[in-house]
Amino acid sequence: MSNQNLREPTINITPEEYKKLSQQRTPKPKAARNIPRAFLVGGLICAIGQIIINFFLASGLSRNDASSAATAVLIFIGALLTGLGVYDDIGKWAGAGSIVPVTGFANSIVSPALEFKREGYVMGVGAKLFTIAGPILVYGIATSIAVGLIYYVLRF
């Protein structure tokens, strides 16, 4: 709620005019730079995932098992790079390209774990582990249940 009835003298601009001015002057994200970067890095992570899947398939795993194993490997890599302090630098460059793949999900869980370790394993790591990933899980699971129910009903 903005100020009402300010004693004069005060600045000669209304909140509406200021909002317009501030929108004009606030720099926008550099989409022309960010989108290709996100495409490159996101694509690269997926390509690495595919290589790992192919490796597991060649080792004799079934397709389902191979993709589960590859996901686990990617999560491990994401977590490791977060622990080494590299993932945030990748994220700075790649934006959504490194947030959306499963490695970004690992980063969103490991980074609060590292951050809140000093508050202890219960009130720190335990309580804060899902501060970023929590909403994704809540709505991800809720959506999948809803879709599952619709699918179940439509089958009859």
Binding site: K28, K30, G85, G95, P112, E115, T131
Partner: peptide, 17 residues
Amino acid sequence: ERQYRLPTEQGAQRLMS
């Protein structure tokens, strides 16, 4: 950062503003 925003190792892009 940890009080007002995100964990420091979180790989998100900061806005230009």
